[in-house]
């Protein structure tokens, strides 16, 4: 199959490359663009390790072809660090509350939590658990992940109040 020219915005930058139509977005990100934050955990869209933010949606990039993302706006975990290189609030709260162990699910988990808090800035514990139910973690038992996301929500809201 001939390769296609694929172009999209990734973490605020225009990126492009050539790929066979059948190339999955996760492989295009990881192999062609060397963006290795999103991981591959199951390949059947169950685990969420490959989650990226595409056009304001949390998307499992193992179940999207790169060509389908042509023209899209994509954010990965690499785009959630503050511009000055310090940890973003979610990243910091995951560290603060021990919301990760092996780190393999973490990029997808934080990317998903980022979108969740955009849509629901004041979630309950139940809403957080439901909202991250597309992401599997084998290490933490989720309890500290939930704690970290709730803490991040609180901090983001107090930042917002302070700014107002």
């Amino acid at each position: 199959m001939s390769k296609m020219h694929i172009k999209f915005r990734l973490n605020g930058q225009e990126v492009e490359g050539l790929a066979e139509p059948r190339m999955l977005l996760i492989h295009f990100l990881r192999e062609n663009l060397k963006v290795t934050g999103p991981h591959i955990g199951c390949e059947t869209s169950h685990c969420g390790a490959c989650t990226v933010d595409m056009g304001g949606k949390s998307v499992k990039s193992c179940t999207v072809f790169a060509c389908q993302a042509d023209g899209a706006e994509i954010t990965t975990i690499e785009g959630l660090t503050n511009p000055d290189g310090t940890l973003g609030v979610l990243q910091e709260m995951f560290r603060e509350h021990h919301g990760l162990q092996c780190g393999f699910c973490t990029p997808g988990m934080i990317t998903r939590a980022h979108r969740l808090l955009q849509e629901n800035p004041t979630p309950t514990e139940e809403e957080v658990r439901f909202g991250i139910s597309g992401n599997l973690c084998r290490c933490t038992g989720y309890q500290n992940i939930v704690k970290a996301i709730l803490a991040a929500a609180e901090q983001l809201n107090s930042h917002k109040e302070a700014a107002e």
Partner: peptide, 15 residues
Amino acid sequence: EDVRFTQGRGNYVDD
């Protein structure tokens, strides 16, 4: 470890 992992800067075999 978490400063790397939370930013997607881990280095796993497939990376």
